[in-house]
């Protein structure tokens, strides 16, 4: 399988502290790759570096073979790299309908059209309706996002990334904060993502990780600790030590 996303010696320092220290990661096309590690290991920093929210102190990022290290965040999205956020980052004053429409218009290069009215392109409307239905948002599509229950907002968070039609999707703890009885709805939509979309998942919940991932990388103190198939990682005594140590500390 070809590698779609790769980092080479990625580093990020905050002041004197290295949050990410020389991470070289390869993610294969169509993979369900999980990035795990104890709190403060630098997982979210890696995502922020990959998406261009932060600039790396050193190292390179390659998307489908091309160097995107210096590319602005919005340009990376146009190249097919989308993400969700651990804490919802939504447009609270817009409706889900507008939110999804926005992403689709942007992808089609119509986002800066200032004369055409919204909703006049039937293809866009069709796609909006399709995505909203897929993420169980049809019944709330006219409501203000800020007024939606948390579970629905979480679904919209993922739907919005999907509306960008990414080749590579970065999911930052998709089920974080969602009550137990609503989790399955979110996990089901994650599991149903099209096979050609490559997914990098950050997750704390080991049940989710082992039921979803076909490859796991463990990040500890900003460095890659173990990288392999789920069974290997599960057996690795060092991983057990890290997690056991953490739970003893807690």
């Amino acid at each position: 399988m070809p590698v779609v996303l790769e980092t080479v010696g990625l580093e990020k320092h905050f002041g004197g502290i290295a949050a990410v220290a020389g991470v070289s990661l390869k993610i294969e096309k169509g993979a369900r790759h999980a990035l795990i590690g104890p709190n403060g290991a630098g997982k979210t920093t890696v995502i922020n570096l990959l998406t261009g929210v932060l600039r790396p102190s050193a190292g390179r990022i390659l998307l489908e073979g091309q160097d995107i290290t210096a590319l602005e965040a919005c340009k990376r999205v146009q190249r097919g790299l989308a993400r969700t956020f651990q804490i919802n980052q939504l447009f609270l004053d817009l409706t889900p309908l507008e939110t999804i429409g926005l992403a689709i218009a942007e992808r089609l290069g119509a986002g800066a059209h200032w004369w055409r009215l919204i909703g006049t392109n039937p293809q866009v409307v069709e796609e909006i309706v399709e995505i909203l239905a897929r993420f169980h948002l049809t019944d709330v599509m006219y409501e203000r996002t800020g007024n939606l229950p948390y579970g629905k907002q979480r679904l919209l968070e993922i739907a919005l990334a999907i509306a960008c039609r990414p080749h590579v999707l970065l999911l930052d703890e998709p089920a974080a904060g969602v009550p137990e009885d609503e989790r399955h709805e979110i996990l089901a939509t994650v599991a149903a993502l099209p096979g050609d979309v490559t997914v990098l998942l950050i997750e704390h919940d080991m049940d989710i990780v082992f039921s979803f991932a076909d490859r796991i990388s463990v990040l500890v103190n900003g460095a890659l600790f173990v990288d392999g198939a789920p069974e290997e990682v599960a057996r690795d005594p060092r991983v057990k030590a890290v997690y056991l140590g953490e739970s003893l500390d807690a």
Binding site: C74, A105, W114
Partner: peptide, 28 residues
């Protein structure tokens, strides 16, 4: 007219959450 266009909508998105706006490909 401009306010009701995709451009106008994207402005409201930028105002609401610039971080997310750039994460869906909007050049803020």
């Amino acid at each position: 007219r401009v306010v009701y266009s995709p451009f106008g909508l994207s402005l409201r998105a930028v105002k609401g959450n610039a971080l997310r706006a750039s994460s869906i490909g909007i050049s803020v």
